[in-house]
Amino acid sequence: MALSGCLVVIALALTLDNPQFADFVLRLSIFGLYALSLNLLVGYAGLVSFGHAMFFGFGAYAFGLLMQTGLVSIPLAFVVSIAGAAVLAVSVGALCIRLKDIYFGILTLAFQMLLHAVILSWVSLTGGDQGLQGGIPRPPFLGVDLGNPKQFFVLACVFFFGLVLLVRQMVESPFGYSLRMVRDNPERALALGLSVQRYKLAAFVISGTIAANAGVLMSLYVSGAYPNFAYWTLSGDGILMIMLGGMTVFLGPIAGAGIFLMLNGIITRTTEYSGLVMGIVLLCVVLGLRRGVLDFVFERCGPWAVRRLSREG
């Protein structure tokens, strides 16, 4: 199902050959991945992070900097950045999961802003508020040339669907159910012999690493990295996406990312007061639907659709 969807999108984009559409699909895969990874933490493990952009930004900068040295190939730089993000996630996560509820969120925000401050002030390395200068080289590897937009597009889509399937597998595995137990009743989970703190840390690290993947993809796509990749507004946007799309449906965050990008696109194109319109739309969703759009749709369409989509999705 997912694979066929992937092929359809690729085929569509290649035949349409519409740069705007391709751009949308690419941004959707990047932010969809980002939102999906955040929902692993927020929706499945019940850990509300306000600092998720930390990993997105870290991935983008680490990858960009490695590539700019000119010494490493894309796959190597990719692996090293992701490994670095995992190390970052382990150390930050180990501190953050000691706190609960809103305090957990605030601490993640603090660490994210710390990274942001480092990026801003370490001008010689990161280019400060100008972002990474000079573009990110894309040397061909294994017969793949990412300089070619079509090849880049196909690879990004495959990458996206691969990771989505991976996350899907994760949330449907015993591990995924353990996360739900830790979220819903940590005391009972502990009494059943689950090391609650370890599960929280695992969720934090996996989610952070996947966000770093999205960051890497982003830096490749825009051929640069900017401080706002690690700014709190992006963390906020992530939460916005999962709330817009819905936290309880697996594909909700991706739908949310899509809605967010479309809204943003339409609004910025049609009005100069984008915040006003966006704010009003948000209010309507939050106060009107009181849940994500996909959550809402699924509740309306009843259990039939839920079963169908959760079997196939």
Partner: peptide
Amino acid sequence: FISPVYNSNVLMQLLVCYAFILILDDVVKI
């Protein structure tokens, strides 16, 4: 706007506030 979300989760409250940050900034601009 806030009283309807007293009993919702933190994220709902956060979003209502966020929406108003966006709205008020633009209102001030106007």
